[in-house]
Simulated scan of single mutants.
Amino acid sequence: MNQMIRTPQKTKANTPLPRSKAKPDELVPSRYAVRVGDIDVLVVSDGVLPLPTKMLAHNAAPADRAAWLDDMFLPQDAFDWALNVVVVRSGGKTILIDAGLGFDPDLHLPRAGQLAKRLAAAGIDLGSVTDVVLTHMHMDHVGGLLVEGVKEQLHPDLRIHVAAAEVKFWESPDFSHTAMPQGFPDALRATAKRFMDEYRSQFQLFDETHEVAPGVVAYRTGGHTPGHSVVRLASGGEALTFAGDAVFAVGFDQPDWHNGFEHDPEEAARVRIRLLRELAETGEMLVATHLPFPSVGRVAVDGDAFRWVPVFWDY
C-alpha cells in the first residue's frame, strides 16, 4: 500500500510545469499510509457527513458549544464530519475496519459513501479483503457493504467480526437516550436490519476481545453502542488504535460532552476518558472515524482535558 513518491524534476525559472491532459477524478487522493511495525495501514476517506453542530454536545449549554465552535473556526449551525475507514494488512490477511456509509437516497448525502471508488483508486480489490471488523453497526460503518454490486465482488469466505452484544442490540434497538436529527433513527434501524439479513451467515462474533490477525485485536468498549469496539494494532514496539466513534473532535477539549448518536452517553463519556488517558500514557497513535482526515495523531493530557497532537507527515 505504501507507494513511492517521485521527486519532481527541476525546471528553469518561469517555465510552467506541463499539465496532464487527463483530468483526475479527484484533486486530492483521499488515502494516507502508515506502518505499525510489520503491519501496513491505510486510512481511507469515505467522504464527509454534514450534520448539525448540536450533535456534538447536546448536553452542553448553547453558549459553551458556540464558543468551542468559534475557537475551532467552525460554523455555528452545521459542519462536515469526516468519515474514515482503515485497511490493514497483517499475517497474509487484508482487513477492512468499518465499511463507510454507502448510499441512502432518502438522506441526501452525496459527498459520503465514497469507499468503493477510493479503495479502487488505491489499488485495493474488494475481492482481496479477507476480513471485515465492525466497530459497531451504525449505517456509516456498515453501509458500504450494502451498495449495489459490492457483495458480488467480495470473497465468498469473507469473515465479518463484530461484538455479540452489538448484534443483540440491533435486534431490538433502543434510541431513548440519543439526540439525532429526524429520520436518522429509522434509517439506522433499517440499515442494521438489512445488513444482518445480508451478512449474518458470515459473522464471527466475539464477547470482549478477539485477535483477527497477528497484532490486530478488537476490544469491546460499549458506550456509543452496547457492542461498540476499538481495534488496536501492535507490532515491533509500535501501536495504533482505531477508536471508531469513541472519540470525536470535541472530545479532547470536552470529553464529557454527549454526542447525539451515543446510545448510552454517560458510559460513552467514561469510555472516551479512559481510552484517551490510556493513549496519552502509552504514546501510541490514534485514528478515529470522525476526526479530520487523515486523523492520525497522538493524545496528550491537558489539565482536566486532553490535547490532539497530529503526526508530522513524513513521506
Rank of each mutant, 00 (worst) to 15 (best):
N2I: 15
N2Q: 12
M4W: 12
T11R: 15
T11C: 10
K12E: 10
N14L: 12
P16D: 00
K21R: 14
L27H: 08
V34E: 06
V43C: 13
S45A: 07
L51P: 01
N59M: 08
A67H: 09
A67W: 03
L69P: 02
D70K: 15
F73V: 09
L74D: 01
F79E: 00
N84H: 13
L96D: 10
G102N: 04
G102W: 03
L107P: 01
G113D: 03
K117A: 15
R118L: 08
R118M: 06
D125K: 00
L126G: 02
V133T: 06
H138I: 06
H141D: 15
Q153F: 03
H155V: 13
R159D: 09
A164Y: 09
S172N: 13
D174P: 06
S176Q: 08
H177I: 04
H177L: 14
A179Y: 10
F184D: 07
P185A: 04
T191Q: 13
A192I: 08
R194C: 12
F195T: 03
E198P: 11
E198R: 15
E198K: 11
R200T: 11
H210F: 09
V212N: 00
G215M: 01
V216E: 06
V216H: 07
T225Y: 08
P226N: 08
V231Y: 12
G236M: 08
V247K: 01
A249H: 08
V250Q: 05
G251Y: 07
G251K: 03
G260E: 01
H263M: 09
E267N: 10
R270G: 14
V271S: 04
R274V: 09
M285F: 07
H290C: 06
H290E: 05
S295I: 02
V301P: 02
D302E: 08
W308G: 03
D314W: 12
D314C: 09
Y315C: 14
